[in-house]
Nucleic acid binder design. Sequence first.
DNA 1: TTAAACTAATACTAAAATGGTGTCAGAATG
DNA 2: CATTCTGACACCATTTTAGTATTAGTTTAA
Lengths: 131, 131
Amino acid sequence: MKLITKQTDYAVRALGYLSGRGDTFISSGEIARAENIPASFLRRIMQVLIKAGIVAAREGKNGGVRLAVNPATVRMIQLIELFQGKIELSDCMVRKDICPNRRTCALRTKIQQAERRLFQDIGKTRLSELI
Amino acid sequence: MKLITKQTDYAVRALGYLSGRGDTFISSGEIARAENIPASFLRRIMQVLIKAGIVAAREGKNGGVRLAVNPATVRMIQLIELFQGKIELSDCMVRKDICPNRRTCALRTKIQQAERRLFQDIGKTRLSELI
DNA sequence: TTAAACTAATACTAAAATGGTGTCAGAATG
DNA sequence: CATTCTGACACCATTTTAGTATTAGTTTAA
């Protein structure tokens, strides 16, 4: 059971790398080499970050990517949801039909409690705190 | 992203059912019907619980399963690890070679914090609290 | 003005995890 | 001895995750 997939992990590392490089555009290739991430995989990851507005891209030679926001405004929960989808915990919260005694399902309550905590802990952590 | 898979979910529901039935042996089939769980799937799940010593089985006609331990001693973390494996969070904690700057990896620290909390919240929850 | 170094977009494949089924054997019971 | 169970697996389908590749288009610099 993994809480953080490679995509999220790679994204954090790439963003960390970028945050140390100011305003200059860095190529995905350079990041991939430096952080030991498969290059084409990282490119796809970058495109997600670009569409999310977290990094900005510049095409062409000497192009690349750079942070588009202050690292203090990027939260782990945003990255996790971007690459792993919303935290669902268990189907019984999503597909309400499958749990016969849903109303009194105590597991559900417990799990929701845990969810709230998880949001507090890794969720609200800012990218700036990681670098 | 899911914290609880169906196997774990089914296991909890089955154990909940058993906990209301005292010392008599109940067939997997009956539990499956009552809790709306695919029968053969539940059978496989029960075998795991049996091997883990959480339920005891009796073969043959009028056989079945029953709780082998006090529900208060069964913790969610045990069930999660049984069916979903240990909580690993990210590879950078497991395969120490892949993260180049592991020593100062701040994500690692944060994630470990979250892990501890997660253990407290759903992990240490007792089966008896869920039923 | 063209080659080189980039991103954009997306299709594709491989591997692993998850969810679910089926079967054959053997034990207990009535 | 037929029925109702578990034991022990092998098998399959689907989804998720990881990773590769390809074609097109943009920018720059020689």
